[in-house]
Every structure is written in C-alpha cells, then in structure tokens.
Design a protein around this nucleic acid. Structure first.
Length: 190
DNA sequence: CGGCAGATACGCT
DNA sequence: GCGTATCTGCCGT
C-alpha cells in the first residue's frame, strides 16, 4: 500500500492534482473517520507564498524532509491546517489539504465542529482539521501510520479537475496552484 | 446570502 | 512588535 504513495516524491503541482480523490483516515477513540480529498494547494520553496520560502525554521523543517509526512501548522491564533510533504529530501514543498468530503464518521466530524451542518463541516482547511481533530502534534508524523493515514485513491481524470489561483495569500497570487474536484459541493469556494 | 470586522496566539524580524 | 495558506457571527439586502 505504501508503494501506491510513491507519487508523493514527485513535482508538488502534480502531487497536488494526484491527491484529489485520495483518502484521509483518522482513528480516534475506536472510531474511524474517513474523508476524500476534494481540494488542494501546492506550495514550494521557490514560491513567495510558501512557508518554506524563507528557508528552514523549526516550524517548517518538516517541509524540507522526505515526502510522506504531515506538516501541520497553526495560524490566525486559533486554526490548524494540514499538508502532505512532497518532493525530494532537502526540497521545501508540501500540499495543503483544503477540503474533504466526509465518507465515514460524519456524526463525529459534526461533533468536533460543534454541530454545524452540511458542507460547512469540512469545506475549508481549518474546518477539515477541526472535523478530524488534527492539531500540531501530528506535524512530522508519517502518513502511513495510524491514527492519521493517507490512502491512495484513483487518479482523477484531467477534465474532472479545476485549476485556479490560491486562496488567502498575498504573494505569488498568479500561480494556478489550487486544484479541486469539479462540481464537488465540499469545495471551499468554486 | 454576500460582505466585513473581530477573534486570538504563534513564528519570525 | 507585526503579519498570518481562516472562520464565525452580525449586519445589510
């Protein structure tokens, strides 16, 4: 199964496309929460919008390590966002998971989200982390290991993927490095 | 339902 | 000190 995640060592933009349709599996208190990735963004050290742009720091160190680890950061004083580290060791690149579609354990995701309904449970990067109860402690953990795993899914056809500019950044805003599953209702912003 | 202000704490200069 | 890969609630239509 780990073989199927070999694509993570590739180019971050290609990996961001390939991650659409993959599953995040979160095990918690004997429960299993599963979400399908429906929206991603690519970040690379050559890109001024990336946390890795200014070089290695204690926080961003994991981005420069080998592919296949989670990079989770805290922002805006209250939110977490989760990324998958990609590329070669020494290269600061990662893909932000911006939204998932709940597949299993929706009722527990809703509890974590204080009872919000419908698409609002997971249609954003911080919402996704809150729904899956993911915080900074998972930064640096392997994506192949419980209780937070990534499972490869089928590659999406090119005509099912929409590419746009990234959200919430102020630098390198022209790059079309945001990807989402066309017509999926859990996408944060069409 | 669309736009905007406020929350809130961490990492880095 | 300051800016932040966001969300929520409150205001207006």
């Amino acid at each position: 199964m780990a073989d199927r995640l070999d694509f993570l060592t590739g180019n971050v933009v290609q990996v961001a496309r390939r991650l659409l349709g993959c599953m995040v599996v979160r095990e918690l208190d004997g429960k299993r929460l599963i979400g399908k990735i429906v929206e991603t963004e690519a970040y690379h050290q050559s890109d001024a919008a990336s946390h890795s742009y200014n070089g290695r720091t204690p926080r961003t160190e994991v981005m420069f390590g080998p592919a296949g680890f989670w990079y989770v950061y805290f922002t805006y004083g209250m939110h977490y966002c989760m990324n998958v580290v990609t590329g070669q060791e020494g290269e600061g690149s990662a893909v932000l998971i911006r939204a998932i579609e709940p597949i299993s354990g929706l009722e527990y995701m809703r509890e974590h989200r204080r009872g919000v309904e419908g698409v609002n449970v997971t249609n954003g990067p911080a919402k996704t982390c809150q729904a899956l109860a993911v915080d900074k402690q998972y930064s640096g953990h392997a994506v192949t290991k419980a209780p937070l795993r990534l499972i490869a899914g089928p590659a999406q056809p090119d005509d099912g993927i929409v590419a746009t500019t990234r959200i919430g950044i102020t630098k390198d805003t022209h790059r079309l490095w945001r990807f989402y599953c066309k017509d999926n209702p859990f996408v944060s912003r069409p």
